[in-house]
């Protein structure tokens, strides 16, 4: 097998807040092959965004700090890179798309100026040429009348169009890895369908790998090759997408799948998971899921389970399988 494009090993990132230390993610490991799409799913606060920002080395310091682990990208450890090297990698090899494009676009520049700027970072182009390139990129991401739209300011565009602009900018450098953090969460479902289709088609054209973060299991099912399920800062399950939906193993994954109403199925009652996500200041001892787990045993309350492999490429962090 080819070497993976990205390999994350035992990553731990903490935030030093006034109220104490938040271990936002701990012992996070996964790998991503070339051209592959990995979905990261989990509830609010489970550490999805911190994982993505850590890979980009964009964790604000202070209060945040990557404590330990390795992020091997194309054979090199990103944690050993200087900031200027990281900036170059972010401009050329790894690109990121966020949930709310408004916060990542500059409100006082036209979208054309911003795209041109992004292009000029890694291509020697004059102003006119960069503008032409911006127009053709707007066209390629499906923005109608790009000649006119290129002079729009972000606030003159709808959420869907702004996300298209973000995609155009992210892909302008032909990145090998695209990290998308809830790229469609703020959008309506018909616009979401357009954006996902666009993103995945462009990704295929470029042969890029994608790390797609979402809380929507439907989006995961339709786009990912491999899935990691996060809960309270830890990876609970890691499996191929078909395997995960066909044979979910971790009680949390099973509960999540039971919690969502499905358009194709009728259920009188949703399964639901009792209780709530623990506070990061008050992590339960043992398995972090045990207070909400209907299968919890004595050992679950006292000792943290390790990651065990239950099938080829299917790993679970649960005592039931240890």
């Amino acid at each position: 097998m080819d070497k993976p494009l990205l390999e994350v090993r035992n990553l731990k990132t903490c935030f030093y807040t006034e109220d104490g230390v938040v271990p936002a993610i701990e012992d996070v490991s996964f790998s991503l092959g070339k051209g592959e799409t990995i979905g990261i799913v989990g509830e609010s606060g489970s550490g999805k965004s911190v994982t993505a920002l850590s890979v980009m080395r964009l964790i604000p310091y202070p209060p945040g700090k990557i404590e330990c682990g390795e992020i091997i990208f194309k054979g090199e450890n990103l944690l050993a890179k200087r900031m200027d090297e990281m900036r170059r990698i972010r401009g050329n090899d790894i690109a990121m798309i966020f949930q709310e494009p408004m916060t990542s676009l500059n409100p006082v520049l036209t979208v054309g100026q911003q795209i041109a700027e992004a292009i000029q970072l890694h291509q020697q182009l004059g102003r006119e040429d960069a503008r032409d390139k911006a127009v053709s990129m707007l066209k390629s991401v499906g923005i109608p009348s790009p000649q006119r739209r290129v002079d729009d300011y972000p606030h003159q565009m709808s959420g869907g169009m702004r996300q298209r602009v973000m995609i155009a900018m992210a892909l302008s450098c032909n990145p090998e890895l695209l990290i998308a953090d809830e790229p469609t969460t703020a959008l309506d479902v018909t616009v979401q369908a357009q954006i996902l289709e666009l993103m995945m088609a462009l990704k295929d054209d470029l042969g890029a790998s994608v790390m797609l973060i979402t809380h929507d299991l439907g989006v995961i099912a339709e786009t990912a090759d491999r899935v990691i399920v996060m809960y309270a800062g830890k990876v609970m399950e890691n499996a191929g997408v078909k395997e995960l939906f066909r044979r979910p193993a971790h009680p949390y994954t099973v509960g999540l799948l039971g919690s969502i109403p499905n358009l194709d199925e009728d259920r009188a009652r949703l399964q639901s998971i009792d209780g709530i996500v623990p506070s990061p200041f008050d992590m339960p001892k043992g398995c972090r899921f045990h207070p909400r787990c209907s299968l919890a045993m004595d050992i679950c309350r006292n000792e943290e389970p390790g990651f065990v492999s239950i099938a080829d490429g299917h790993d679970v962090r649960c005592w039931k399988y240890a």
Partner: peptide, 18 residues
Amino acid sequence: LLSAVPVPDPERKKHRIL
């Protein structure tokens, strides 16, 4: 609208009306 809803079943191919 219905065709745009992502279905949590990777083995189900949907016809999508974009």
